[in-house]
């Protein structure tokens, strides 16, 4: 492995990374511009487009809705996903194989079809309120990430530790919370973060589950871009990027970033 990749390959890789980074740099530049139109490099530095985000009530409202949905949806997914991931590993022999596949279905079927199906069966079919339907949609959307990441953590957990605790007289439920869960803490944190970001950025499921007064931030961004071509959307994008960076720093501090590449 001492031989370095061919210079042409290195050049291609460098160009690919330039291609990946440049658009994001441009968005940041456009967000800081003092002009009323989108431009790069920024002409005059200003934070006024950031102030404009909060001046527009639709953005204020949808940021709150998006955070509420992402947070609650992720918690719900953890609530049903952790026991499922535990069962898949602890009762690997007893449970059928298709059960594991079932939990990844939400990322296997097209998201947009899932969103449309929820609209048809929940909101229109049975009159479930939009907020509840949105929450259900996001919970299921992030469930595969929760089950897979926590399953991966549990796969390296030695269940004989749990059996030792139980045979020494610890109650099974107590054992789960004092022995099993602390051992897969890193997996739970990673699952939370991955699920939260996935939910926050989702477009296809939310697309159909919005209505009067209820919308999510990405849907609001889409609507805004189609009407106005000012730097406000660039500022919101930068805000979201900052959030992502913050989350990545947290991951780096707790788990190391290579964890996400798995």
């Amino acid at each position: 492995m001492s031989d370095r990749p061919h210079p042409i390959l290195i050049a291609v890789a460098a160009l690919v990374y330039l291609f990946l980074m440049l658009p994001l740099v441009i968005v940041v530049g456009a967000a800081l511009s003092d002009t009323t139109y989108l431009t790069f490099p920024p002409q005059g530095l200003s934070l006024r487009w950031f102030e404009n985000i909060f001046a527009i009530s639709a953005f204020r409202r949808t940021i709150v809705t998006s955070l509420q949905i992402a947070f609650t949806g992720t918690l719900l997914a953890l609530l049903i996903g952790i026991p499922a991931a535990y069962a898949l590993n602890r009762f690997r022999v007893e449970l059928p194989k298709w059960l594991g596949t079932l939990f990844v279905l939400p990322i296997l079927v097209p998201e947009i079809v899932f969103g449309f199906a929820l609209l048809k069966s929940l909101t229109v079919g049975t009159g479930v309120p939009i907020f509840a339907a949105l929450l259900i949609g996001h919970t299921l959307l992030v469930l595969p990430y929760v089950v897979r990441v926590i399953s991966a953590s549990l796969a390296s957990f030695d269940f004989s530790i749990e059996e030792a605790a139980i045979s020494l007289g610890s109650a099974p439920v107590k054992t789960f919370f004092t022995i099993v869960l602390p051992n897969v803490r890193a997996g739970v944190i990673a699952a939370f973060i991955l699920a939260f970001i996935t939910s926050l950025n989702d477009v296809s499921v939310s697309l159909f589950l919005t209505g009067p007064g209820i919308s999510t931030l990405p849907i609001q961004i889409l609507a805004h871009v189609e009407q106005f071509f000012d730097p406000t959307v660039a500022s919101v994008s930068v805000l979201l990027m900052f959030l992502t960076v913050a989350v990545m720093v947290v991951v780096e501090r707790t788990l190391g970033l290579t964890f996400l590449a798995k």
Partner: peptide, 15 residues
């Protein structure tokens, strides 16, 4: 490579 992946699709299309 992870960073753009965690940035939303709307932001990346908007760029």
């Amino acid at each position: 490579a992870v960073f753009p992946l965690l940035t939303g699709v709307v932001v990346r299309a908007f760029a």
